[in-house]
Simulated assay, not measured.
Amino acid sequence: MGIEEQEISKIEEGVGTSTTAKTSGDAAFCSSASVVTITQKLIAEVIGTYFVIFAGCGTVAVNKIYGSVTFPGICVTWGLIVTVMIYSVGHISGAHFNPAVTISFGIFRRFPYKEVPLYIAAQLMGSILASGTLALVFDVTPDAYFGTVPVGSNTQALVLEIICSFLLMFVISGVATDSRAISEVAGIAVGMTILLNVFIAGPVSGASMNPARSIGPAVIKHVYKGLWVYIVGPIIGTIAGAFAYNLIRSTDKPLQDLVRNGSFLRGSTSK
């Protein structure tokens, strides 16, 4: 009996040790600095995207329903809300709020590849939640739809989205990724770029420049006309904009050296 009791005791101790180790491992995982950090970033992206869409699309809905905002007011609102949210959470998550921007940062090695899907999911969640809130608060009829639908042809809207997204990412690359830039005005520069783009392309394409901005309202109100334009256009435009800026980032090396070394992708040349 003594031997059996010892074996049972060892088994119990082994089980207890295994359970304790598992619990300790789970606690370590939950308290890991990297896990906490990425969680904070994702929460910041959800909140930031939520308020960008809530304010921007909200003014579109209010203007269509009550007619009290006017088109210039919509443009200013988009620029202001992006500026405000960049200064609010930019130091936490980088203030992407845009899957196309996140993808471009990932391609040009300005952002970890493994975090790209997480950021995109957070941005889409923020947009869908904001769009759902607007749908609950306002009586959104088809005429008051606050999403983006091409006014002209899909091709016309696609070209405008590519051009506007190019300019947006070109500015972001200049003010947010180049150490020679004045980082304190990055939020203002990006916000004013969006304001300008909405003035130019808003009446034709809606000036989305952001797949999340178009997907959220489309999912909530089930309006998918031309949605592919607002997914493909911004992604092509932002990649091209980042590529263009990285080509001119360095002025002390010939183009053939930049291409040969891949510096135009890394953006890690002298600044």
Results as ranks from 00 to 15, higher is better:
Ala61His: 13
Ala61Asp: 03
Val62Gln: 12
Val62His: 10
Asn63Leu: 03
Lys64Thr: 15
Lys64Ile: 13
Lys64Arg: 14
Ile65Tyr: 05
Ile65Val: 12
Tyr66Cys: 12
Tyr66His: 14
Tyr66Val: 14
Tyr66Met: 11
Gly67Trp: 06
Gly67His: 07
Gly67Tyr: 08
Ser68Ala: 14
Ser68Pro: 05
Ser68Phe: 09
Val69Lys: 02
Thr70Arg: 13
Thr70Ala: 14
Phe71Glu: 04
Phe71Thr: 02
Phe71His: 06
Phe71Asp: 06
Pro72Arg: 00
Pro72Asn: 10
Pro72Ala: 07
Pro72Tyr: 09
Gly73Leu: 06
Ile74Thr: 06
Ile74Gln: 15
Cys75Ile: 09
Cys75Asn: 05
Val76Cys: 14
Thr77Pro: 05
Thr77Phe: 03
Thr77Asp: 13
Thr77Ser: 15
Thr77Val: 15
Trp78Thr: 11
Gly79Asn: 00
Gly79Ile: 01
Leu80Trp: 03
Leu80Phe: 11
Leu80Arg: 00
Ile81Cys: 05
Ile81Pro: 02
Val82Lys: 02
Val82Phe: 03
Val84Tyr: 05
Val84Lys: 00
Val84Pro: 01
Met85Gln: 00
Met85Ala: 06
Ile86Arg: 02
Ile86Thr: 02
Ile86Leu: 02
Ile86Asp: 00
Val89Trp: 03
Val89Glu: 02
Gly90His: 01
His91Asp: 07
